[in-house]
């Protein structure tokens, strides 16, 4: 959905749904997902419809993902860290996740 401009370099590795992908230091989780062609980051609790980041500025809550085991984090506000584990969220939250 998005591509990186030439003057940026990939510098670290994160895991998205168990798959290793490259990200740039300074990316947020949502930006890294967009740059890696992840076409949705969650499905809704109400109808299970797929959603992707919409506003990238912390107000729409569409980019909610699980980060290092904590659910419903706003991917657009969390900077990536080497080795970070990101999981897409499917439907309703389970207790404790």
């Amino acid at each position: 959905m998005f591509k990186r401009l030439g003057d940026t370099a990939d510098t670290l590795t994160i895991e998205i749904d168990g798959k290793s992908v490259r990200a740039r230091s300074g990316d947020t989780v949502a930006a890294a997902m967009l740059a890696n062609g992840i076409d949705h980051c969650r499905t809704t609790p109400v109808t299970g419809a797929p959603r992707a980041p919409y506003c990238l500025m912390g107000v729409c809550f569409e980019c909610l993902v699980m980060i290092d085991g904590v659910g419903s984090r706003q991917g657009c506000l969390v900077p990536v860290r080497d080795g970070m584990r990101v999981e897409t969220q499917q439907g309703k939250r389970e207790a404790g996740r």
Partner: peptide, 25 residues
């Protein structure tokens, strides 16, 4: 407007400013 691929213009601008990303396709 809830479909993946539909975003705000501001989101694309943030992607460009903060991350050097431009929409593709």
């Amino acid at each position: 407007w809830t479909l993946p691929g539909v975003m705000t213009a501001g989101a694309a601008q943030t992607a460009l400013k903060a991350h050097g990303l431009v929409p593709n396709g």
